[in-house]
Write a protein that binds this DNA or RNA. Sequence first.
RNA 1: GUGGAUAUAGCGUAGUUGGUUAACGCGUCAGAUUGUGGUUCUGAAGACCGUCGGUUCGAAUCCGACUAUCCACCCCA
Length: 448
Amino acid sequence: MSLQVKRPKGTQDVLPADIMKWRTVEATVSDTAEQFGFREIRTPVFEDTALYVRSVGDTSDVVTKEMYTVSSKGDATFTLRPEGTAGVVRAMLENGMMNEGFPQKVYYIIPAYRHEKPQAGRLREFHQFGVEMFGTQSPYADAEIILLAAAILDGCGLENVALHLNSIGCPECRAKYREALREYFAPHREELCETCRERLEKNPMRLLDCKSPICREIASGAPVILDYLCDGCREHFEELKSILDDYGIKYEVDSRIVRGLDYYTRTVFEFISQDIGAQGTVCGGGRYDGLVQELGGQPVPALGFGMGLERLIMTMESCGCAFEPEKTPDLYIAPMGDAARRKAALLADAVRQAGYAAETDLVGRGLKPQMRYADKIGAKFVVVIGDNELETGEAKLKNMRSGEETPVKLSEFMNAFSSELINEVFENGLGDEIAGAVADEIEKDTSL
RNA sequence: GUGGAUAUAGCGUAGUUGGUUAACGCGUCAGAUUGUGGUUCUGAAGACCGUCGGUUCGAAUCCGACUAUCCACCCCA
């Protein structure tokens, strides 16, 4: 088959069969965030391009080659958001939320866009859950954020996602460290791979996570950032670790965790899964104490993380985690013949108005195919309405699980349908008043 | 941007050294005498074998180009 228009590279369709995976994750993620006192915020999918250049960093890969930027009718250029933090900080500032008292805690579930070459766990349109906290320097805040991420992963049923933790210090200690790195690598300059030679000039910290064996070998003897932290940063990091110990959260101090977004300071961390291929970072985040000021606000310390929803779902799948089951219809009404069909349509409507999920035949099938269909969609009850039923005004309500059939009067169908016995099966039955009212409505309609 | 792999019905696959109507499973639809599903049985629909070009009497099968997808590097969620 040759379909003319195909979905853009690096995008995905989420089909009905998979939608419960997303619903499950979205519910887990937002429920847990709310338990920790985070409130949802929604910001535009596109922002002024300058926002990302300023926040993410004008030398970062994301800004230099991965942004979807469009020019609008005026002079302004807009960019599809490549990540969530910048837009949130902008919105907080623009709406005066930095003046409402601290800490401010928000979360979001968003699509984000990056023009990269797709591979396992890496898409051009991907979805991210993120949280941001503003207005506290306390290492307890860092710990709280990490605890939240861990709680979510736990809530999803994941056990083997490893926490990698590091501190990249404040701008002052980082400057010193960069110098030290340059001094260390300079004599090895010629042995380094090409990209690493560039890194040596631009961002020597990235040298540390080069995959090339030679660079790796050289890097193994390189100075470690933790030895260069100033007193304040070191204390902060030590305290964070001891709080995590109190919580019983396992972590591995990993000096290779550096993060590619320029705004990070001090704490950086990643939760890495071994089960989904090369792009194993399910969650990444840290502190960004300088960003709010960079975007024009007062200096406000801040921190947060982003969690890749596709990667989260992939990890859950590969670990055999459970997702919430799809809801199935409470009732299927199988009519036979035109008169019955009209009655069935009205009955279905009444059942729906009473708050239940009901379906009836829309394609004109025979009884047997209808039963098959009712079974396939997982209907909990089926009622057959044919000439006999219309004549006698009585039908049989069949419980599809047990096969049991209970006689019901059509005129009192809603009463019967919402009776205690049946509600037990549904667990979410309606009150008798509503059910009775609906039954009355049906009673009035005697034209059929 | 750089590498590697793959491209056959809605999905998952088989197609041997190129040879008449491209096979199977799942799914879909319809039947298996009287108005009742999940099992079983029978039947049907559904593919110009990614696209274009080449070799050949003849190509899903060989060659080339293109495109798409997947995986890895890079980077990150």
